[in-house]
């Protein structure tokens, strides 16, 4: 079903299946993503609107293939680069260094 002028994230009224009531407790890395959003917002580096702007620009595929906090860290990171908090080169170097520490989140963090 297509609606002219309606972006993918504007889901209200779309046909959809049954609601899955399962829940999970948030992992440490997910809580940290949430904390980074709140803290960087408090520092004026981003805000709810800029978080959502990047999330919404990711498109519908990201919603289906990435988890909630995967999308959030992608948006936070994009916002931090735009705010000048660090450069893409610094991010790439740091991610490579993190990977070298070990193969699990516990070992790399």
């Amino acid at each position: 079903m297509e609606y002219f002028g309606k972006r993918w994230h504007d889901m209200g009224g779309d046909p959809a299946g049954d609601i899955n009531p399962d829940q999970h407790d948030f992992a440490l890395w997910e809580k940290r993503v949430d904390a980074l959003m709140v803290l960087s917002s408090a520092k004026g580096l981003m805000n709810t609107d800029s978080l959502r702007r990047v999330l919404e620009d990711m498109g519908p595929d990201a919603y289906e293939t990435m988890s909630y906090y995967e999308r959030w860290i992608a948006s936070v990171t994009q916002n931090m680069v735009e705010a000048g908090a660090f450069s893409p080169e610094e991010l790439a170097a740091k991610m490579e260094a993190v990977k070298q520490r070990g193969g699990t989140y516990g070992a790399a963090t």
Partner: peptide
């Protein structure tokens, strides 16, 4: 709380987890 834990510290490090660590440390 009766809910399953999500795979966390012991599962293979993902791209997005790597990004979280990197962003946190850079900030």
């Amino acid at each position: 709380s009766g809910h399953p834990y999500r795979a966390d510290n012991d599962a293979p490090l993902t791209y997005w987890q790597t990004m979280e660590i990197a962003v946190r440390e850079l900030l």
